[in-house]
Design a protein around this nucleic acid. Structure first.
Length: 612
RNA sequence: GCGCUCGUAGCUCAAUCGGAUAGAGCACCGGCCUUCUAAGCCGGGGGUUGCAGGUUCGAUUCCUGCCGAGCGCGCCA
């Protein structure tokens, strides 16, 4: 509908230019350049344009006068009931009733696809999100990225993009080796060996679960005694050592602390990994490694699936190495002259493209860095034709943006072809007390726990109801215990309420006749009904705006608003009246409202219950 | 020190790439169930949009500086 109005105003501008009332500079080339917004107050009209104020300067006319001229020259359309120039220079447009009523029919006809744009050719884009290292279960911090990424993907799909959802599996790095060693040590523990557990090992119970799995499968075949395992290793740090502990004792007052704890936990764990490889051999280590990896991926996959988050592809990092993609991409950068050697390592000259420093891609020991994989992965995405390739990162990764953009540019791409969205942290509160999210405290960390405590719908909604670049407080008390105040229940209740009316009708043996209803929609003239219809009208436009702004939280607000309109209507008017025409017309409106609520809830990843 | 994201009602947050009187929820106060789900509705109080400047017809939005919060600045992943 907006495009119709843009078109009409565009034509009016052309006419005024043709008559020499206005200079030709005022012509906005694509009509879409003409901004159309919703009126803040429905009494003013349905749509508003600020075009007269925008062009006042180039036209050399006061905004109000220009607005009036435009109104005069806008050709009469059957869609428009009224068009006026108002106060500072806005042009307000009121839609014809017939136009509004038709919305109900549109919704009923389009059904699950109402609000969805379906262009002939869909632009292919990729959304990569979560991508947590498979070294442990997902924690609540990943939850927001998961909920945001999934809803954003659904939103972009609705807006007409061909969306590819991708999870990048870091199955190649040192962290995975540490997990494997952690599992192996727990396995040895189960075998009866009393080995020390390293400070930087993974301590969660899930590590024992995997160890148990291996022992069931392979018995004691991978057992080595504790002396073989720990002899001649560099000393470990204390298990509880916190590098940046801010306790009262500072280095200068308690210099004994350093001597008590001379170990380097990083050197220790690296040596331990090496030892494990030696003792287990290539095959033995692989058994532990693969079992751990698969167990964790299963865990994560199941967790996400239960959360309603699905991916089209799980992209394994190691494939980039195996296929030679990393080498090829690095060679490409070398050929372009963006790589140099220093201190035995190879550096990507990221500073040429605005990064604050150059970045190592090949270490002096010959191994490629994590960033080298990132570059190859980036190239893979762009070669596959995604435009843009969207990354959803936690806010703590914002430092990666300049180097990734630099890499894209170094490979000869437009840096705008990759788009990096940051999701800010969510703080969990219980009864006003902030819960620690560190793994060490073990207080409340797993996404699974959160889902079990508050439910999937609540978790999904709470995660996305705030703008992704806004820090957010997630209060478990409000989310769970006080469900009267929970916005997601409020929305779902509106949907259930409508379903309940249809049930009621059936119980009373009265048939709902949609044909009669559609013929009678013109009876829906009271304020409440008009408000609801306008809500339905706004939905497709909201999808487009929210998608452009990568802001699924706008759907949360929209849904709440639509639910409020429904509840208000329900309280003010009796829906199931005796008059057959009016009753069926109202039921049509409610059916359409339920449909829009369903569509919005689906994009947000929440269910639309028939009863509550 | 440098950089990124922010700062809006008592609390949690909106505000459609700069628009009309800055809006919701929670909390607080007062009304509405013999009738379709009261998990609801209606009404009320509550604001110098962190501070100071600047840009223009118009600023919560854009620019500069300051104050404050969170997070980053490795041949770690």
């Amino acid at each position: 509908m907006k495009d119709v109005i843009q078109e009409l105003l565009g034509q009016a501008l052309h006419q005024l230019v043709k008559k020499d009332y206005l200079p030709k500079e005022v012509i906005k080339e694509p009509a879409e350049e003409i901004e159309i917004s919703n009126c803040p107050d429905p009494k003013m009209g349905d749509y508003a344009s600020n075009i007269a104020m925008k062009l006042a300067k180039t036209a050399g006319l006061p905004p109000m006068q220009l607005a009036e001229m435009l109104v005069e020259h806008t050709s009469r359309s059957r869609h428009i009931a009224d068009i006026t120039a108002d106060k500072p220079g806005f042009i307000n447009i009121k839609l014809a009733d017939s136009c509004l009523f038709k919305i109900i029919i549109d919704v009923l006809e389009d059904g699950d696809l109402y609000g969805y744009r379906q262009p002939e050719e869909r632009q292919r884009i990729c959304v990569e999100f979560v991508s947590a290292n498979p070294t442990g279960p997902l924690h609540v911090g990943h939850g927001r990225g998961a909920a945001y990424g999934a809803s954003l993907s659904a939103l972009l799909d609705a807006a007409g993009f061909d969306v590819h959802r991708e999870y990048y599996v870091n199955d190649h790095g040192r962290q995975m080796d540490i997990l494997a060693v952690s599992v192996w040590l727990r396995y040895l523990e189960l075998c009866g060996e009393s080995v020390n557990f390293p400070a930087s090992g993974y301590r969660g119970d899930y590590v024992y679960d995997i160890a148990r799995l291996i022992r069931n499968e392979h018995g004691d075949h991978l057992r080595h005694n504790k002396f073989e395992v720990s002899d001649n290793l560099p000393p470990d740090a204390k298990p509880d050592a916190k590098p940046d502990a801010k306790s009262g004792a500072d280095a200068d007052t308690a210099d004994g602390a350093a001597e008590d704890d001379p170990g380097d936990k990083e050197k220790h764990i690296d040596a331990l990994i090496q030892r494990a490889r030696e003792l287990l051999g290539k095959d033995g280590f692989r058994i532990v490694f693969k079992t751990a990896l698969h167990a964790m991926l299963d865990n994560i996959r199941t967790d996400l699936a239960e959360f309603g988050v699905e991916f089209d592809e799980w992209f394994d990092e190691h494939k980039l190495d195996k296929s030679g993609a990393i080498d090829r991409t690095l060679q490409q950068l070398r050929d372009a002259g963006h790589v140099y050697e220093k201190d035995g390592a190879q550096w990507f000259r990221a500073t040429t493209f605005g990064d604050s420093q150059d970045r190592v891609v090949v270490r002096d020991n010959g191994r490629t860095t994590y960033f080298a994989s990132d570059i190859a992965y980036l190239e893979s995405k762009l070669l596959r034709g995604y435009k843009p390739a969207i990354y959803v990162f936690g806010a703590d990764h914002h430092g990666y943006i300049p180097r990734l953009k630099a890499a894209a540019e170094g490979l000869g791409h437009d840096p705008d072809d990759i788009e990096i969205l940051l999701v800010q942290f969510a703080n969990l509160y219980r009864a006003g007390v902030r819960l620690s999210m560190s793994t060490r405290s073990g207080e409340f960390t797993e996404l699974r726990q959160l889902r079990e405590e508050v439910g999937n719908d609540v978790a999904r909604y709470y995660y996305i109801m705030r703008s992704h670049n806004q820090h957010m407080d997630f209060d478990l008390e409000q989310a769970k215990e006080n469900d009267l105040d929970n916005p997601i229940y409020y929305i779902q209740y509106a949907h259930a309420r409508i379903a309940s009316l249809f049930r009621k009708l059936e119980d009373e043996g009265v048939r709902y006749n949609q044909a009669i209803g559609i013929d009678s929609v013109k009876l829906l003239t009271n304020d409440y009904e008009q408000q609801l219809i306008r809500g339905l009208l706004q939905f497709p436009e909201l999808i487009q705006i929210a998608a452009e702004k990568r802001s699924p939280h706008m759907l949360a607000h929209f849904s709440h608003e639509l639910a409020r309109k429904l509840h208000t209507y329900y309280n003010a008017e009796r829906i199931l009246v005796d008059d057959e025409n009016l009753r069926n017309a109202r039921m049509c409106l409610l059916a359409a409202t339920a449909q829009v609520l369903r569509n919005a809830l689906r994009i947000m990843g929440c269910s639309a219950p028939e009863q509550m």
